[in-house]
Design a protein around this nucleic acid. Sequence first.
DNA 1: AATATAACTAACTTTTTGGTAAGTAGCTTT
DNA 2: AAAGCTACTTACCAAAAAGTTAGTTATATT
Lengths: 121, 121
Amino acid sequence: MKKEVIFTDILNCPVRNVLDRIGDKWSLLILMVLNQNEVLRFNEIHQAIGDISQKMLSVSLKNLEADGLVNRKVYPQIPPKVEYKLTDLGKSLLPHVDALAGWSNQNMQTILANRASYQKS
Amino acid sequence: MKKEVIFTDILNCPVRNVLDRIGDKWSLLILMVLNQNEVLRFNEIHQAIGDISQKMLSVSLKNLEADGLVNRKVYPQIPPKVEYKLTDLGKSLLPHVDALAGWSNQNMQTILANRASYQKS
DNA sequence: AATATAACTAACTTTTTGGTAAGTAGCTTT
DNA sequence: AAAGCTACTTACCAAAAAGTTAGTTATATT
């Protein structure tokens, strides 16, 4: 009996690659906030999300920027001013995120009920 | 100047709730494998994914089952036999996952290029 | 009698992630 | 002259996630 890998190479696959970045604690939230506001400064995002630390906001923005999902514009002035907005690439991702959000909204109650009844059994 | 939270309550929001489960290292992979195969046994999923540990497969399946995305059917025999398949709820999520997968496939090269050029600067 | 089997579970270690608190820059306002 | 502003960075720490290894079960096979 031979063992074969049905779904080879999935670890180097695009989905995994993208989700590793998008699937962390804050990235999607940041993308959604930026999607609602066109342009935001660091502290505006910080306040919009409310409970993200400066460090995580900074790290997450950097990752999103590295992937080309978010654009960062620095104004060389003091105190500093930096503006963030979605790139076209970032914008092209958002509909899928929204679709997922829609599904989540629709099925949240069911899922919570499932979790609850699973625990009891 | 008042500080206001633009995007209140996002932490208790459905998207976050769902993504906390779906956005881990293995869940989406498992869903995709199950979507391609209708019914699979534990070891078949294990081999299909290739480098997931038994423990993580077990934990992930349990979470997916708890949320009602995956159905688990035990045959009371020895050696044991357990079959996994998507529930209707699970199936209803898959199109969105596939959409995300499609986006990832289309934009993977761009993203990798972005990352590479970001590092150099 | 020993070994194989399938689907796990338990205990433990390692790795990754995220949080906290403090510090930095240099100009402007008090 | 001290304090405030903005957008961070750094060092450190705790918690969470994931990996490793060994063990369990009870029957069937060699």
